[in-house]
Design a protein around this nucleic acid. Structure first.
Lengths: 342, 342
DNA sequence: ACGCTTCGTCGAAGCGCTTCGACAATGGGC
DNA sequence: GCCCATTGTCGAAGCGCTTCGACGAAGCGT
């Protein structure tokens, strides 16, 4: 419980010298700097967060809001919250957790009381109340994900279009000519709108550009096993699948495949796009272009810190390029007819 | 950005009167109280957290540390963190998230800088470094879970013994005479030590008291499907199972059962003990005595707040009684021999 | 040797709130 | 009608830090 005054006395300098020696905001003779540091260490001095925040008008805290609808993955949320927290620590910020029921109230409160210097908004829905609030808050806010109207907002997200393009490219390069997309359930799309649609569009677009035969199916969460049948009905010749579904559907699909005796990648290649792995479970055995918190969160936090410290101006969407994780689920397309030349 | 001085001016009273009117810490005439409140509302006044914290020597923030080893369930962690946060809000506290890699450093830092008024420790291991730290921190700490040595610590946990007892009692009352326990994998027990062992002991103890035939198996995470075979080998007559495993094993067991044509509850009754449901997935279809964050976290937060505000003295273990959730997986034991009297 | 800048340090003024002691004004007991 | 306790309000002293302006001491050119 030593204060800066104790350190000053111990080091035989004034309070402001201690402050400058510790913050480096003014030049200090090496000698006195060392004396101050030694005194601080000897006394186990740590500046009180509240006093620092009051004087510096900055709390070094960022708030994180995650709504948690029943159908979103808790483990993914945790992964994002953790990634934000870790990234924040790299900038010497701590992270305040704002929960579901009072996300709005929490945002208002942390802004009004200067509890937090900025806010990170997770799990953004297409028409998210938090978007309107953010515009009127007068406190830096960064969204991880894109609401329908990004006007005036600062957003960071995975480049889902690029990811879908790359997935199709990868399959095309491996010789696949008929590819299916297993997308999100219709109701998720209705709510989340933005990114599943971006994937669907980008998938179709690139498949068309490359002259591929393609189709998409949206699973029904109550009958996830039907999705493979649906796809095969639509696309009997399919040799490759792009997967962008809830994990449960992906698991069901895996089961359906093995039940039908279809091997990955021998009979069917699979690439996953924009799915978030549960770090506490074994990953799906598919090549993927994941929505990895480690990719987007640091960018979001960097952006937010830039806003807080006045280095950046608000507004603008940053799309983070996807990275490809190989798990051996893409193989050359099986030869369609036995018309090979020997 | 109105300050208390603005409110005082607007209401025509002194600063301290505003403070007392808002905090209620001294009696104030109804009339002036109303005037102050109106003035505050008019100006959109919200007290600055840092100023309040500095003056009151209390930040109204509690820190939460969750380690997150690879094998613990992220969704469960999230559920706990959320439950703590919600409970904290009920006491007008906010929640700071401390992550894995610097749990210790984070605890030290938030205590030393008075960033947090208290700390909640989640996912406690048997020999948890955070336990020693907590003893030397001079800052209120509450553990959710029991380390091996609880001396000098304040801990809250589910009463796993009572839960195991109740599970056995329930099965016994339904006429079951041979019961198996599917417990945690050996390595989890080695690390987590405390609660799985408490369950195993209490299970055996109560089964013995009631004269039941019993046995326990510990699954192997790499071969979860073997667990049913193991149990049937040990206990061919088994008619009821108490389940206290990772979710993945429970799922595997369900599959093994249906593969063998065993129906729950017709052929086999099942009760779950001390398992935490993933709120974003459909619950296991078993009667359970869950480790529900909604049970332990509010108690832990109440305790912590008591410590912070000096109402309680530290030390002591609080065991929260389990609640029983029925899902129709317990039925009367099948009659062993067809020797019924008509 | 002179004034100039530059460098390192200090003092003091806040930051916006809580809280303690003081002090009128009121009310009750006698 | 007097005294004492209550009650409601105020003023001021912090809480522990940051930061601005000031200022003596060097160092420089000339």
């Amino acid at each position: 419980m030593a204060t800066i005054a104790d350190v000053a006395r111990e080091a035989g300098v004034s309070i402001s010298t201690v402050s400058y020696a510790l913050s480096g905001k003014r030049s200090i003779t090496e000698d006195t700097r060392v004396r101050v540091l030694a005194a601080a260490a000897r006394l186990g001095y740590a500046p009180k967060a509240a006093a620092r925040a009051l004087a510096a008008r900055r709390s070094q805290i960022i708030a994180v809001t995650t709504p948690l609808h029943p159908d979103t993955d808790h483990s993914a949320h945790m992964a994002f919250a953790m990634a934000v927290t870790t990234a924040a620590r790299d900038h010497d910020y701590d992270t305040l957790l704002l929960v579901q029921d009072d996300a709005l109230e929490g945002m208002r409160r942390s802004a009004a009381t200067s509890l937090a210097d900025g806010i990170v908004v997770l799990d953004v829905a297409a028409h998210d109340e938090r978007a309107d609030l953010a515009r009127s808050l007068g406190c830096p806010v960064v969204f991880i994900g894109l609401p329908a109207d990004t006007g005036g907002l600062t957003c960071v997200d995975l480049d889902f279009r690029a990811a879908a393009h790359e997935a199709v490219d990868t399959l095309h390069a491996a010789g696949h000519r008929t590819v299916g997309l297993v997308s999100q359930p219709a109701d998720v799309i209705a709510r989340e709108a933005n990114y599943p649609l971006r994937i669907e569009q980008a998938f179709a677009e690139r498949a068309d550009e490359l002259g591929l035969t393609h189709a998409l199916v949206r699973p029904d969460l109550d009958a996830p096993h039907a999705v493979l049948d649906d796809l095969l009905r639509l696309l009997p010749e399919v040799t490759a699948i792009v997967l962008s579904t809830p994990t449960s559907v992906a698991v069901a699909l895996t089961e359906s495949l093995s039940r039908r005796g279809l091997r990955v990648p021998d009979d069917l290649s699979v690439v996953t796009v924009g799915m978030t792995a549960d770090p506490s479970r074994p990953p799906l055995p598919f090549d993927s272009l994941p929505l990895d918190p480690a990719l987007t969160c640091p960018v979001a936090v960097d952006t937010l810190v830039g806003l807080i410290e006045g280095a950046t101006s608000p507004g603008g969407v940053t799309l983070v390029p996807p990275t490809h994780v190989s798990r051996g689920s893409v193989a050359p397309a099986p030869v369609p007819h036995p018309t090979e030349v020997v």
